[in-house]
Amino acid sequence: MNTRPEVVPLIDHPDQYAGEERVAIVATHAASPGSGAAAEARRLRSWIEFLSTRPTAITDLRLASRVGQGLLAAVAGQGQLRSLGVKWGPYDDLSPVAQLSSLETLDLQGASRVESLTPLLGMARLTQLTLSQVHRVPDVAVLSELVGVTSLTLGNVSPGSDTGLTVPHLRWVPRLRQLRCLSLPGTRLVDHDLTPLLDLPDLVELTLPLRRSYRRQVFTLADRSPVFASLAAEYESYDAWRAASRT
C-alpha cells in the first residue's frame, strides 16, 4: 500500500480555516493576483485578530509569506502549537515565540533582523531548531542552553540569499549533549577547529560546507567518527565530480 504524505492546506483568509491541525497561511501576499494593497492590509489584520484571539486546533503552523512583528506577536495566542515555521520577514523580537510553551519544532527562515536569541532559552520542550540568516545575533553560543535540542540547523538555508553566517567557533556545541543532527549550511567558522564535535555522544548526522579549510581535519577525524567519515566521502564525491567536469 502506498502512503502519500499529508497535504498541508495553504489558506489566505481565516474564513477558509476548517479546523485542520496542520496549516500554512498566506497573510501578507495575495494568493490570487490583483487584490491590491488595501485588500492585503485587511487580510493581514484579519489574521492578526484570528490568531491572537481565537483558540484553534492548529498544532503545526507555517507562516508562508512575509512576517512582520505584528503577525509574529499574534501567534502567541496559539499556545497549543507544537510546531511553528516562519518563511521570512522583518520580524525582530522572538519574545512572542517564547510564550509557546508546548513548542517542540521551530523553523525561523530569513531571520536577518533578529538581534537576540535569549527569548528562546527558556523553551524546555524545544527539540528541533532551525535558524537561518541570524546575522545580527552577536553570539550564537547562547544556544548551548537549549540542552533538550536534538536537531539544530544554523546558517543560511533561505533561498535567494548567498550571504554566509559567520560563527566564531564550535566550542559551545558539545553542551548540547542530546544533539543527534547538526547542520551548518552557509556558515563560515572563524576558528576552524572541528574537534569539539567529537564530544557529542549521539551525533549521527553532520552537514558542513565542503570548505577547503576543513578538508584536512575532516579526513583526519574520519577514523574516529562515522559522521566525519561521511563528510570525507562527500569531499571525495565532490572531487570526483570536479574531475569529471574538466574532461
Rank of each mutant, 00 (worst) to 15 (best):
L231K: 13
V173T: 05
R54N: 09
P196E: 01
T59S: 14
D223L: 09
L84R: 07
V137W: 00
E49N: 14
P168V: 05
L221V: 03
L154T: 04
R246F: 01
P14R: 13
A57C: 12
E234R: 15
D139H: 02
H29N: 05
S32M: 14
W47T: 07
N2L: 14
L51T: 07
T56A: 06
L203G: 10
G186C: 05
W172A: 02
N156A: 05
V204L: 09
S102C: 13
G155E: 00
L71E: 08
T150K: 08
V86K: 00
T59Y: 01
L200P: 11
F219C: 05
E49L: 10
P14C: 10
A229R: 11
E115R: 12
A64R: 10
F228E: 10
T150N: 05
S102K: 15
L108G: 13
P9A: 12
L108H: 11
A141H: 08
D202P: 06
V134D: 01
V218W: 01
E49A: 15
D15V: 13
L143M: 03
E20Q: 15
A18T: 11
R66V: 12
L198Q: 07
Y17R: 11
V140A: 00
P159A: 02
A37D: 14
L108N: 13
N156L: 06
G34L: 06
L84F: 02
V157F: 02
D12R: 09
Q80I: 08
S52T: 04
S245R: 15
V97Y: 01
L81Q: 04
T130C: 08
V8D: 06
D193M: 00
D199M: 11
P33K: 06
S116Y: 00
P14S: 11
R212G: 10
M1N: 15
P168Q: 08
G186A: 08
V8N: 08
L120R: 09
H29T: 11
L208S: 07
L61R: 01
W47Q: 07
V167E: 03
G77F: 03
E6F: 08
S46Y: 00
T130K: 14
S65L: 01
Y91W: 07
N2Y: 09
L143D: 02
A38K: 14
L84M: 03
G36H: 10
V75T: 04
A73S: 15
Q133T: 06
K87M: 09
V8F: 02
E20Y: 02
A30C: 04
G155D: 00
L129T: 05
Y214S: 03
D12F: 03
E234L: 14
L154S: 05
T187D: 00
R246C: 04
V8G: 09
A64D: 13
V149S: 02
L72Y: 03
L182G: 07
L184V: 08
W88Q: 13
R171H: 13
H29K: 12
Q16A: 13
V23D: 05
Y91K: 12
T187R: 07
L84N: 04
D199Q: 15
G34P: 11
Y214R: 01
P9H: 10
A73G: 09
Q16I: 06
T163H: 15
V142D: 01
R246H: 10
A124P: 02
L146W: 04
H192E: 11
V190F: 03
